[in-house]
Structures are given as structure tokens and as C-alpha cells.
Design a binder for these strands. Structure first.
Length: 219
DNA sequence: CCAGACGTTGTT
DNA sequence: GTCTGG
DNA sequence: CCAGACGTTGTT
DNA sequence: GTCTGG
């Protein structure tokens, strides 16, 4: 799955790769957790924008915004039908940028890994967002879509985030793309894209937030 | 008809 | 909001 | 995802 | 064990 990731690339790199205009101040983060604001690329006006949205999708019809707490991920296999996700899947698709993400291999102790592009560069997760309004204001929130693990990820975990190819960004964000074509995109990326490395268990604690969290350790 | 759910992950 | 269960 | 809490009363 | 917070 994807419950923790990092994003520290300069805003200029994000704007270039995703052809979007940043409308929020972005700070380097090496330990991004659900329930925090995360940068999201989505359609806005004539072009694409980068905005901060709460990680954990709160359905627009939800009475309790706490519902978002368990919506950090959405299964790609079922987004088309789940009540919480099918509306956003039709209308509110987004891309969530990352420099890498973390997965924990089961065992004692659990061993965290950092997964990055083998050739370096930014990843774009397939995501969904929604707009929620409550008595005390409005919240735009988002979720990261998951799929089965590819060969590279399988030794660590049976799920992984959907990582879009840059040539698929436009298709994913285009409101006119048919659902069948969208579902074609929700597949595990090729093994060769990814590079995995074990990292310090310090990443488990969300209070730790420094570049060393992404650094490979021995073993 | 109304009431209640609406989700994923990992682990057992 | 929309579906499922009763 | 993991880490950490898991409670109430009265008083300031 | 299970929920909340980050």
C-alpha cells in the first residue's frame, strides 16, 4: 500500500514535470503521513494547479470528517464501484507527487524500505480528491490509489501505489477519458522503474523528518 | 418504506 | 449522495 | 503507514 | 484489542 512517503524536490521541478502552477508554499518533507496536508496536482481553471489537500479522502456527503482517517488509500480494483470513491473517480482525479515512498516488510522487527525511481526523479501517484463542507468550513482531501505489487515490490509487500507514466498524466486527468481507459492505467508499474533500499526504523515515528530517512542502511 | 453503511491494511 | 439490508 | 493512547473531576 | 493522531 502506501501510507508514508517523501517529497522534497523544489517547486520548480514539480511545476515542470507535472506542467502545473503551484498555488501553495511547499516545504521539503521526508515523512509524510495520512491526515496531513499534501501537495496534489489537479485541473484548476484552464490548466493544472498544485494545491495542498488533506490526505485521507472525506466524501462530500460525509457527516463526520473523521471518516477520512481510514481513506488514505483506495483500491484500484474497486474505485469504480465504492460509494466513497466512484464519484471522485469520475470527476475528481489527481496526481500526487513524491520523491519516494516507504513500505514495511513484515517480520520482527518490521523493516522499512524506501522505494524510488531507479533513474531518479519524481513519481506521480494516481489519486482522487473530494470537496467536503462542514459547519466550520470546507476541506479538500485526497487518497492514493493502490494496486497489486509488481515483481520488485512483491518480496516486501503485496500492495503498492499506482505510479503513472508521465505520458499518461494527461489521460488520467482528462475529464473525458472513459472509465475503461482509466482502469487500464491502474496497474502496477514495470519492475525496472523501481529501486528499493532498506532504511532506518526511525521513519516509523512521524516526528522524525529529515533526509537521512531515505538513505539506505546496511543489510 | 427507513436505517445504516459508505474503507484499507495486515494479521489471525 | 446512493446503495444495501431489513 | 506506525506510534501512542486508552480517563474524570475540579481547579487554575 | 482498537482507536486516534501525525
Amino acid at each position: 500500500m502506501c501510507g508514508r512517503y517523501a517529497l522534497s524536490s523544489p517547486v520548480e521541478s514539480l511545476e515542470a514535470q507535472f506542467e502545473a502552477e503551484a498555488r501553495a508554499l511547499l516545504t521539503p518533507r521526508y515523512n509524510i503521513a495520512p491526515t496531513t496536508p499534501v501537495p496534489v496536482v489537479r485541473n484548476g481553471g484552464p490548466g493544472r494547479v498544485i494545491v495542498l489537500q488533506h490526505w485521507g479522502l472525506i466524501p462530500s456527503w460525509s457527516k463526520d470528517p473523521a471518516m477520512g482517517a481510514r481513506m488514505a488509500n483506495a483500491r484500484g480494483e474497486t474505485v469504480v464501484e465504492k460509494p466513497s470513491f466512484r464519484g471522485p473517480f469520475r470527476r475528481n482525479r489527481c496526481i500526487i507527487p513524491a520523491d519516494g515512498f516507504y513500505e514495511w516488510r513484515a517480520g520482527t522487527p518490521k523493516q522499512p524500505f524506501c522505494i524510488r525511481l531507479a533513474g531518479g526523479g519524481l513519481l506521480g501517484f494516481a489519486g482522487l480528491w473530494d470537496h467536503w463542507e462542514g459547519p466550520d468550513g470546507a476541506v479538500d482531501s485526497c487518497t492514493i490509489i493502490t494496486t497489486s505489487a509488481n515483481g520488485a515490490m512483491a518480496p516486501i509487500h503485496d500492495r503498492m501505489p499506482v505510479i503513472l507514466a508521465p505520458e499518461d498524466y494527461a489521460r488520467w486527468l482528462d475529464p473525458a477519458t472513459p472509465a475503461e481507459a482509466l482502469r487500464e492505467l491502474l496497474r502496477p508499474c514495470p519492475d525496472a522503474w523501481l529501486q528499493l533500499a532498506p532504511v532506518s526504523t526511525r521513519v516509523g515515528n512521524v516526528r522524525n523528518d529529515d533526509p537521512d530517512l531515505m538513505e539506505p542502511i546496511d543489510g
